[in-house]
Write a protein that binds this DNA or RNA. Structure first.
Lengths: 337, 337
DNA sequence: CTGAAAGCGCTTACAG
DNA sequence: CTGAAAGCGCTTACAG
């Protein structure tokens, strides 16, 4: 059975094809009688506008692409669990706004998003999971050249302070570590990547340092551990610390996953959390309340993040200036400290 | 700056527009010299084919829609965590096949996918998370009428045995419960929804019953608990059992989430898992190894599921007959039993 | 408020 | 292997 076109509807409703288009678009004045007849005819023939023709003709795509970087630390899932609620909220909010969402998992080697804008699949791109954004600078440069709008969640880039959408990493880390210090902890491990390449984590490191300074506690470089962001790495790092006889009474992990790995190792070694070692994470994955003890953490507000990302991108698509947004975090105290 | 069209490329390469299209499509014979010139010109102008014009003209959309039912049991995540790796694998495999993926979160009340096929956004639809598919029968009927291809993961529908893609629920449950019985457990709680409306869970219930029958152990109806599929419900159900003084020595939950809730309640009540009560889940979420004790479970193979879903859908789109596929599960023994 | 007409940027028979 | 031409199904000035 052939798909009906607007001409078929026009014939059935007894109007011109142009009027059908106008009635269905809800953006032009159309007499009530005509509108009714058009909608009835459309319903009768199960007609809907061919979105491809509309996009071609109107030049409005009304679609955003969400490009998620494949997470090599999580081979089972491919996507970092932190992004699950974020993607969910983006889909939700985009749905509310009536824009379609194309989702793609990007491998490191891929042509990487360039295709999406260029081929007019999408009006703009949201990048998720590009922690080490510096690596991608060259590719982003192409997007910039052709004026393809995009926005990244997480890392702040020196060149585009305006394009930043992310959490208040420094503030969140500061609150978390201040709390640990208030608890009487003095030897707090920083578990994460404190290099400038990962600005998100580096900001958390700065919050860690500031909390120490404000409390007059010395930061011991031996406690700043550099490792990848997976549970296994967190477990291994703590193991090494224990093996080396390093003295510590708390762990601040830049990621819940890392914190969970830390707790598992500590418990395996017979240490009790939080009695012997306090542990604090970052993100507030839903898993935090599944483990024992439940994990205290810094909550990233993914609902707000999703809205801000979509709104910012839409503003850029419309040619309006975008503002950098730093989303407040929230300290969530549970059992692990 | 205006986007270049195939006419611009044609002018630059010194050929006709039709030849540009043919060279770029890689599907027609084109002389080597012409091909080179066309590709050079395209690269120079940052040209890519306008996907919307191509879709309109060729009538090939090359896009599938993944419609995920909003999970009301998981308000924080909106998407059931089980689907994370499944969606990841679908994105991955679809990417390999060069088809775009539109993802949408569907609320119960939505027009529900009908839009996707009708408006020619996608060639076909993959439904995820429609456990209680009977509710949607009427809506699916419309898809059937217009010949829009679709496939569902999970529940098997009586009318379309061919369209089924799902795990070997009965076999997985049978293996799990048989293992519990072999461990000496005799009073095994079935935690889930054993109604026919949820065919996935009902199949698991049948496996639970068959394992008992084969071992000559009586099934006690008092141990078959009906509850929603969330951690909270699992916790509450076990609490009720404990309060009522019901005797049981194992829990088989139709979902890891439920099993985790059960373990949390048991531990809160001072019971030791697995010494006092063995617990077995279903799915093999990555969380299983985060909790203490690590959860034994029945693994659903999401990688294979993703491939089968995409392949089946593509076959349907191409007008070929589809076969029902039941994907083997795997018993994963860890610490909880 | 409505119609006739042009045209979005491609693909693909049809001829050669 | 290549070109000229038609046309996919819409939206949107332009007139009235």
């Amino acid at each position: 059975m052939k798909r009906p076109t607007s001409f078929d509807i026009a014939a059935l409703a007894g109007v011109s094809q142009a009027t059908v288009s106008r009635a269905l678009s809800n953006a032009y004045p159309v007499s009530e009688d005509v509108r009714r007849r058009v909608f009835e005819a459309a319903a009768k023939l199960n007609y809907t506008v061919d979105i491809n023709a509309r996009k071609l003709r109107s030049k409005k795509i009304n679609t955003i692409a969400v490009l998620v970087s494949e997470d090599l630390d999580q081979p089972d899932n491919r996507i970092n669990p932190f992004f699950l609620p974020l993607i969910g909220s983006i889909l939700d909010y985009a749905g509310e706004k009536g824009v379609d969402v194309l989702v793609s998992l990007q491998k490191q080697s891929d042509n990487w998003g360039v295709d999406y804008g260029f081929s007019r699949r999408a009006d703009g791109i949201i990048f998720l999971g590009y922690r080490d954004f510096e690596t991608y600078r060259q590719k982003v440069e192409v997007l910039r050249q052709v004026g393809e709008p995009w926005v990244v969640f997480g890392p702040q880039m020196s060149e585009d302070p305006d394009l930043f959408v992310g959490s208040d990493n420094e503030g969140g880390a500061h609150a978390a570590v201040s709390h640990l210090i208030k608890l009487g902890r003095k030897r707090i491990v920083f578990l994460g990547e404190a290099s400038e390449r990962h600005s998100e984590f580096f900001e958390r490191f700065k919050g860690y340092v500031r909390a120490h300074e404000e409390a007059g506690v010395k930061v011991d470089p031996a406690l700043a551990i550099d490792c990848f962001i997976s549970r296994e790495e967190g477990a291994a790092a703590i193991q090494r610390l224990l093996d080396d006889g390093v003295d510590f009474d708390a762990v601040f992990a830049v990621t819940d996953l890392l914190a969970i790995g830390a707790i598992q190792t500590l418990q395996k070694r017979g240490l009790v959390v939080p009695r012997d070692v306090s542990v604090m994470g970052f993100d507030d994955l839903w898993v935090c309340t599944c483990i024992n003890p439940e994990l205290s953490t810094v909550r990233q507000d993914t609902t707000t993040a999703a809205r801000v990302l979509v709104d910012t991108l839409i503003r850029l698509i419309d040619g309006q200036p975008a503002e950098m947004t730093r989303i407040p975090t929230q300290l969530v105290l549970r059992e692990s400290c």
